[in-house]
């Protein structure tokens, strides 16, 4: 058996350096399956979406067809619903980030302190992350935010206030509350991990120099968390750009388009209105949005893989 792998994407470079002199392992057949299927998974459907976005294509009307040029895009970009969906998407991402990173940082500092039963309290605090999105959305919608029988309505009435019709009056805000509740534990977990990697000698030294809790937070902990916070922001953004299930089971994007984000708009266009061309054009816009974030994230990861 010839064990030279000149055509392999991952030739054993270190073997040449003598470190792996014992044997040359053919890495190509080992890596190839993963690479090939991921490539197919990413490139083929994406190319198809791109192709569809330049076509007239309606699932219900076979007479519609042919090359559309940029018409799907111009139609989409002049359609006010795209702008609404984009604004809703960004609004949702922004506020969920503010809530999760803000409270996540405070909670991470809190759970870094030593107190009785900290381990169990931490388990309770990270629990929402493991609840499936359809369950959390329905629990919030029915049992907490329901305008008649919900717990919040009961509290409001006990205080003599009118009950809030969450999904009727503040649909997008309600979705934001639910999504933020699901992602808060994620921010907490990662920021807590980062805080715990802070050198305790450094903290001790600052304390010796007379740093109070506030200067400690702003001058020692927060600068140390900078990287972790940016990673939380990037990863959450990628997931939050395509929030779907929470909208699907609570508001269905309504009333009107009030809580429709880009992901939900694409779903409505493609699987409810059967307009494949238009939905594909919107899909391409979603991919571009996510890629802008992904570039920064990949750079950040690359720095850490280096060692």
């Amino acid at each position: 058996m010839v064990s030279t792998t000149t055509s392999a994407p991952v030739p054993s470079a270190t073997a040449a350096a003598g470190e792996r002199s014992q044997r040359n392992v053919k890495t190509l057949p080992l890596v190839a399956p993963s690479v090939v299927i991921l490539f197919l998974w990413m490139i083929v459907p994406l190319a198809m979406t791109l192709w569809f976005s330049f076509q007239y294509y309606n699932l219900l009307d076979p007479s519609v067809g042919g090359f559309a040029g940029f018409e799907n895009y111009t139609f989409l970009l002049t359609d006010p619903s795209l702008l609404t969906a984009m604004m809703n998407t960004l609004f949702l991402v922004f506020w969920v980030l503010v809530i999760t990173v803000g409270f996540g940082t405070l909670l991470a500092v809190l759970f870094d302190q030593d107190f009785y039963g900290r381990g169990i309290a931490r388990l309770l605090a990270i629990a929402p992350f493991f609840v499936m999105p359809t369950v959390s959305a329905l629990v919030w919608k029915n049992m907490l935010m329901h305008p008649v029988n919900g717990l919040f309505a009961f509290f409001a009435r006990s205080l003599g206030l009118p009950a809030i019709d969450f999904f009727g009056s503040f649909p997008l805000t309600s979705v934001i509350i639910i999504v933020a509740w699901q992602w808060l534990p994620f921010a907490l977990l990662i920021l807590l991990t980062a805080i715990q990697s802070l050198d305790s000698e450094q903290k001790e030294a600052a304390r010796m120099d007379g740093a109070g809790p506030f200067s400690m937070f702003f001058f020692i902990i927060l600068p140390h968390l900078g990287r972790a916070i940016s990673v939380v922001i990037m990863i959450e953004t990628i997931f939050l750009l395509s929030v779907f299930a929470e909208i699907y089971v609570t508001t269905s994007g309504g009333p009107g388009l009030a809580s429709t984000n880009l992901a939900f708009l694409i779903y409505l266009r493609a699987l409810r209105e059967y307009d494949v061309g238009g939905a594909s054009a919107a899909g391409i816009i979603a991919v571009i949005l996510a890629n802008i974030v992904a570039i920064f994230l990949v750079r950040s990861i690359a720095k850490n893989i280096a060692d």
Binding site: L38, M42, F52, L241, I266, Y267, A270, V298, I305
Partner: peptide
């Protein structure tokens, strides 16, 4: 290669919903 694999995870699912 590793970074490229991770980057595939960053593509939003809605972008490929229709072809899939």
């Amino acid at each position: 290669l590793l970074l490229w694999m991770l980057s595939t995870k960053m593509m939003p699912a809605v972008g490929v919903l229709i072809p899939i």
